[in-house]
Design a protein around this nucleic acid. Structure first.
Lengths: 343, 343
DNA sequence: TTGAAAGCGGTACCAT
DNA sequence: ATGGTACCGCTTTCAA
């Protein structure tokens, strides 16, 4: 009966128990060809008996790689980041990499946390508003491959994002087609690059429509409550024809506030979101679908390429950029449609 | 102008550039009291110039700790696990720990992946159906603290879960109160301990109600599509009064199928879910709310306690168990209510 | 096929 | 206050 280990067993104890050297243990456990089947079994038995688990840090140090990469996001509010991370984990696993996650929001020193993380991984994916470009630049220059996600490009660093402006323009056209002339954007363009792109696109799109006006209201955040609060205040004043929200959660909050105020959507007020969360479908919310999982997966794959490329000391290729397509999903809340177009 | 590092700088290069020993570099960078302000500055400058980032694995190896812990979940489908992880990350960060995530679903050898992970962390949280009790037992016995989440207890290992059976009984009573007599449970009790608990509670609850009957239908999975498919088949046959679903996503799928079949909910069919996702609120779905974030956070805190306790070589205290309360959230889909009870 | 030993890049103890 | 150095646990030459 094996006792509960007081101190974790090392390769040395396994070697001693099996009556071989640590080199042989290492080889046997790593299925090297250089050990007799007999020896291998003896080593395996010893390892099992001692419940030996190789130390990850020792292994990483010796191998010169972490077999892990990190993903940094601002916050974990809402399903958006979760989806991205999920896609990321799956793709990273396929390349044999563990994933370290780091949420910067609420940290006292995000930059330090990210720098520390950079020392624990082979590569790093950084999203949205987390740390400044200076930190990104330093990390990239220090030899840790970086991929940016949903974030303005930094020279020399790969970046990946979902289309914002172009689809926002399409959304603007659709709203104008419904006859909405007085539009309010609910979101803080300074709050994140994504939101900035959506606002810019909306503005550009409406500018092409005669007689429309666009107002900007910044909610407290990007969650349901923030949307609800902002809408409550907004609907108290001169009511717009349509409220274009920075994301679905804010839009859902607006729907709640509108209902509470006795307004009919889209009759009295049109509302749109962004993200196409599961809830959007059930709320009949017109929104924009973006490939969140694919975004995460693509980042992991890009990072893997950079990592192997760096390891092999290949000439670093130029920074890559890609914008994944997004699409307007028309449902109930943007205005009355001829036929039911629910999907 | 610093060149892009071909090879990552180590403490040795920093020491050389600053004209001091590596010991001093280490001290200076870790803000030890034992260095002159002058020296510290010199070292910092050198580190900055070389873009030095200490190697996490070297540090871990030397310090004898990973400053990281892991969380293992089956899959990443749906918002449930995401929420748990988010709560986990926040709490782990508060204890100075990084978080490694691992999804076992789709892996060729989950047990090996988890064992490997165990070698890279100071402690491990394992949820639901991921790896067998034997693996859990081995890891725990090998000296890595483990906390189980939403999973049947393993002797000697802490475990944490949200109430299933008791709340399912309450749900059964509520449904019976609506007059529903023919109830179908949509979920696979063998698929996860949570689902098993919900089914058992429902059965026990209905057993106390005269004249009720309970049927079991196993959908293909726990996602929207699985629910939709299962419901499509179910509604083709003899239609039950109420469908109690293993989780919200399945229930939402049932709602879609019911709508497609021209059935009114709750008039023709009552539906309930479990989890209280954001979408449930907008679908008017009666469900059960569980404290997902808090579940994750509590696991991280328990783990931290175990880790420090182990490190200090304190006598290991008995395995802890806790069941967090959950509550029925009554909305539209369980049956007609006197007043609108939406929340 | 196996063993001895030199790293990997830090930390921290022991001198000075 | 600083330097020298012995680890930490593993991988991987190099010899035998």
């Amino acid at each position: 009966m094996a006792m509960k280990a007081l101190t974790k067993p090392t390769i040395y104890q396994v070697a001693q128990l099996a009556g071989v050297s640590i080199a042989t243990v290492s080889r046997a456990l790593r299925d090297s060809e250089l050990v007799t089947e007999q020896t291998r079994e003896r080593v395996r038995a010893a390892a099992r008996q001692l419940r030996f688990t190789p130390s990850g840090s020792a292994r990483s140090l010796a191998e010169g790689r972490h077999a892990a990469n990190g993903i940094v996001f601002p916050d974990l509010v809402g399903p958006y980041y979760a989806e991205v991370i999920l896609g990321y984990e799956a793709a990273a696993a396929a390349t044999g990499s563990s994933v370290l996650i780091l949420a910067t929001h609420g940290r006292r020193d995000p930059a330090a946390a990210v720098r520390d993380l950079a020392g624990r991984v082979d590569g790093l994916t950084v999203l949205g508003r987390t740390v400044g470009d200076d930190v990104i630049g330093q990390i990239a220059a220090s030899g840790v491959p970086v991929v940016l996600l949903a974030r303005d490009p930094v020279p020399g660093v790969d970046s990946l994002r979902a289309a914002n402006a172009s689809t926002a323009r399409a959304l603007a056209a659709h709203l104008a087609g419904h006859g909405h002339r007085d539009v309010t954007f609910l979101g803080d363009p300074e709050g994140s690059p994504d939101v900035a792109g959506r606002f810019a696109g909306l503005r550009a799109g409406l500018a092409r429509q005669a007689g429309t006006e666009l107002h900007l209201v910044r909610p407290r955040g990007l969650d349901l409550q923030a949307g609800e609060e902002a809408a409550r205040a907004l609907l108290r004043g001169r009511r717009p024809d349509a409220v274009v929200c920075a994301n679905d959660e804010v839009a859902l909050g607006v729907l709640l506030a509108a209902e509470a105020a006795g307004l009919r959507v889209p009759g009295d007020l049109a509302v749109t979101g962004w993200d196409d969360l599961l809830a959007a479908r059930f709320a009949g919310l017109t929104t924009v679908r973006q490939p969140m999982r694919e975004l995460g997966a693509a980042a992991a794959r890009w990072l893997h390429r950079r990592i192997t490329e760096t390891k092999r000391n290949e000439p670093a290729r130029a920074a890559r950029r890609r914008i994944l397509a997004t699409e307007v999903v028309v449902r109930r809340t943007c205005g009355p449609h001829e036929e039911v177009q629910q999907q």
